[in-house]
Design a protein around this nucleic acid. Structure first.
Length: 756
DNA sequence: TAATCGATCTTTTTT
DNA sequence: AGATCGATTA
């Protein structure tokens, strides 16, 4: 094919991208740097195969890691050729769920299985490890989950790698037994079980090889071992496999991702070709240089040279702040100013390491009327009332669900205590049907417990009725109370009926006067979310599965339209695959980013996270670092992140009072040496433009002479008020500064010649 | 059996 | 600061 005869969608590709799209035959590894157009390559390749190679779209499987990525991929491929909608584009986990819905019986799964999230797993484990502290149960749950990521069964000797104790293996064995009895699966099972089924059923595997002729995996650097095994099982003779990834963007090691997968791809898929995409179309050169200068400190990379196609641009800005209040205030000011000059809010993204950090920005943005959205906070589905309602639905779907039963049988209180619950569960026999067991054993219970159990079963019956019967008739029969939830369409009636009959709605309403209404609203929202699903068992299972696998709540496509000029607040992890004109990476402090318990491989992962964050920026990049931060409810002094020292300094604009080692900033004293003091980070400037001359407790005045036991003579150079009282800054004659809280003056600092 | 109070930790990151 | 756990009390 010669270039000028190419259709437009192929013509716009650069030579390497085109090579990747046209490639066929052997396995292919595409090493795609940030912003090098890898999504374009995958989507184009899908369309190309359908259009030019007349491939049946149904025989193409493309796997991603997030639902968002899957949706975007589907959208973009369809823009080129609408037939791409018939290709299977899913996340690994949703592919696994799809697989198990059809073939789960081969592993003894009932058709109505429900997916347990981490909390459910912990609940189940805590009944197994009764009496163990919660932290221990959590650790065990984590290790079991990791074991499944590594495709290790309870008998595998390699489990010692995670935890060599006998209790670990025992717990894992029991956990698997209980899960099997219940008939549900956890996240890890969604990958592990399909592999086992494919291995145990060669005929089925063959049928899959005939069905899926082309398999593509995006973000391959984030695949775990189990996912690698799944990929291998799906790759039968003649199946074309193409994986795309960037070893520098591997940031999910903590949940089992193995960079090894991408590093060893050429060995595992023998004869693989490698294509590198190293032209970056997103960021200006200084931004790429900043990002690279940090990640270059990592060892064990495949290595690549990312070049900016955009060329020159503004230097990244590194701003030192006194504390997080100043951080959010300054950022708000920066954004408002840019908008005043004609920019958009949506140009901006504020990035942070932990979700908890979003709060400060939200408060400040609310106050200053800056419109924003918080991406990926899964709070909705973590709310108590929502989990309650979902547990009721889960139990309706699978009456063997012990976890859901335990959670809801006595909520609201119905006089069914732990003793009764155990009695019911013990009597359930091998069917495991707890609703049936409860009914059977009922005569043996005390009157109070019997009535309570009956009430619970009534709620489940109400749900079942809503599924089975004509919903219109059902709805009319019942006189509606003012505070009732509404739900007419599809599955929503089922949600509403269960929430009401169980007393859940009333319970949450009376439980807390202030929060009650909000909780009712949340339940209503859940009911609304259920309305598109059909009011039958399939609809119910669909709904539950959808909620477990995709909690991003990005349903409301309406909000995406115009009139949504919003600043994005987002964790660094969540930014993968996104881009913004202007990016602010906040809280770049030791202990936050990187966390200070990180070293070795973990530290390298943090560095890659830094790289991911920085390469999201197209035009402008900012870093902020605070001298003081409220953590665990108290103020603690912070040091600038190690990563800031690794940044290419000539390529940076530093503002604010820089700590030692960051030359060039205004206010940096010419002092040398820090006399071995731990506080490398001195300075930080006051919250207000005119710092106080006298501390609010009257104990210190600017210019006061001070003596410190270790550091000698100095003078008070600044006073600032914090919520723990005045913060006094002292500049020592020996050079260097330090700060302390007035209330903790202690013996180290002594005021000279003063009237203490 | 349930609710309340105080003490004791805690915090990654997500399918 | 907030959640969570355990013990104590009604």
């Amino acid at each position: 094919m010669c270039a000028d005869a190419l259709p437009k969608y192929l013509e716009i590709l650069n030579p390497e991208q085109r090579k990747a799209v046209f490639h066929s035959g052997r396995p292919l590894l595409i090493l795609a740097g940030a912003g090098s157009g890898k999504t374009r390559v995958i989507t184009t390749k899908i369309a190309y195969l359908i259009r030019e190679k007349e491939m049946d779209p149904r025989s193409i499987l493309a796997v991603t890691f997030t639902n968002k990525a899957a949706r975007e991929m589907s959208c973009r491929a369809r823009l080129i050729d609408d037939r791409a909608q018939d290709a299977m584009l899913r996340t690994f986990h949703s592919f696994g769920a799809w697989f198990l819905r059809r073939n789960g019986h081969l592993a003894g799964l009932p058709s109505g299985f429900v997916i347990y999230d981490d909390d459910d797993s912990i609940s189940l484990l805590s009944t197994i490890m009764e009496g163990s502290p919660r932290a221990e149960v959590k650790l065990m749950a984590h290790n079991i989950s990791r074991a499944k990521d590594y495709f290790l069964s309870p008998q595998d000797p390699r489990l010692d790698f995670f935890d060599h104790r006998k209790i670990f293996k025992d717990s894992y064995v029991k956990y698997e037994e209980r899960l099997a009895k219940i008939g549900n699966v956890d996240f890890g099972d969604l990958i592990k079980k399909p592999v086992e089924i494919l291995r145990g059923n060669p005929d089925l595997a063959r049928r899959f090889h005939e069905r899926f002729r082309v398999i593509m995996v995006d973000e391959y650097q984030d695949a775990n071992i189990a996912q690698f095994e799944l990929l291998r099982e799906l790759c039968g003779p003649g199946v074309y496999v193409c994986v795309v990834g960037d070893d520098d963007q591997s940031i999910y090691r903590f949940r089992g991702a193995e960079v090894r997968n991408i590093l060893e791809f050429p060995d595992r898929f023998y004869g693989a070709d490698i294509i590198r995409l190293e032209r970056n179309y997103r960021s200006t050169d200084p931004i790429l240089r900043a990002a690279s200068s940090v990640v270059n400190h990592n060892t064990g990379r495949l290595g690549k040279s990312l070049r900016s196609e955009r060329g020159k641009g503004k230097k990244p800005v590194l701003a030192f702040m006194a504390d997080q209040d100043e951080e959010s205030a300054q950022i708000a000011g920066l954004i408002l100013n840019a908008v005043k000059l004609g920019g958009h809010f949506s140009d901006w993204a504020v990035l942070y390491r932990t979700n908890a950090q979003s709060l400060g920005f939200e408060t400040e943005f609310l106050r200053r009327r800056i419109p924003y959205r918080v991406v990926g906070s899964l709070k909705f589905y973590e709310r108590e009332e929502i989990k309650d309602a979902l547990a009721l639905l889960s139990f309706l779907a699978n009456p063997r669900d012990e976890v859901a039963f335990r959670r809801m049988v006595n909520k609201p209180s119905r006089g069914v205590g732990p003793a009764t619950v155990d009695k019911i569960i013990d009597s359930s026999g091998d069917t495991g049907d707890l609703a049936e067991a409860a009914r059977n054993i009922s005569p043996e219970l005390s009157a109070r417990a019997r009535a309570g159990v009956a009430d619970f079963l009534k709620a489940i019956e109400a749900g079942r009725d809503a599924l089975a019967k004509d919903k219109k008739a059902e709805e009319k029969k019942l006189p509606r109370k003012r505070e009732d939830l509404r739900g007419e369409e599809g599955l929503s009636l089922c949600v509403v009926r269960m929430a009401e009959v169980s007393g859940l709605a009333g319970y949450h309403l009376t439980q807390d006067e202030i929060a009650g209404n909000q909780r009712l609203n949340n339940l209503q929202e859940l009911a609304n979310a259920a309305s598109p699903y059909s009011a039958d068992m399939n609809g119910l299972l669909d709904f539950l599965e959808h909620i477990e696998l995709d909690r991003s709540m990005e349903e409301s496509a309406a909000a995406e339209g115009e009139g949504s000029d919003l600043v994005t607040l987002i964790t660094l992890h969540n930014t993968k695959g996104l881009e913004f004109r202007k990016v602010i990476m906040t809280g770049i402090e030791q202990g936050i980013f990187p966390r200070d318990d990180k070293d070795g491989d973990d530290l390298e992962e943090e560095r890659r996270l830094f790289y991911v964050g920085a390469t999201r920026a197209m035009d402008e990049l900012y870093f902020t670092s605070c001298a003081m931060r409220r953590m665990y409810g108290r103020n603690s002094p912070m040091e600038p992140s190690l990563f800031l020292r690794e940044l290419d300094r000539d390529n940076l604009k530093i503002i604010g009072k820089a700590p030692y080692g960051f030359g060039g900033a205004p206010g940096t004293s010419g002092a040398t040496g820090t006399s071995g003091a731990t506080g490398a980070y001195t300075g930080g400037y006051g919250r207000s433009a005119n710092p106080a001359a006298t501390s609010s407790d009257g104990r210190w005045r600017k210019g006061d002479r001070v003596f410190h036991d270790d550091r000698g003579y100095g003078e008070v150079s600044g006073i600032r008020e914090s919520d723990e009282g005045p913060v006094i800054t002292v500049r020592f004659e020996s050079g260097g500064e330090s700060r302390f809280l007035s209330q903790y003056q202690s013996g180290s600092y002594t005021k000279i010649g003063g009237d203490v």
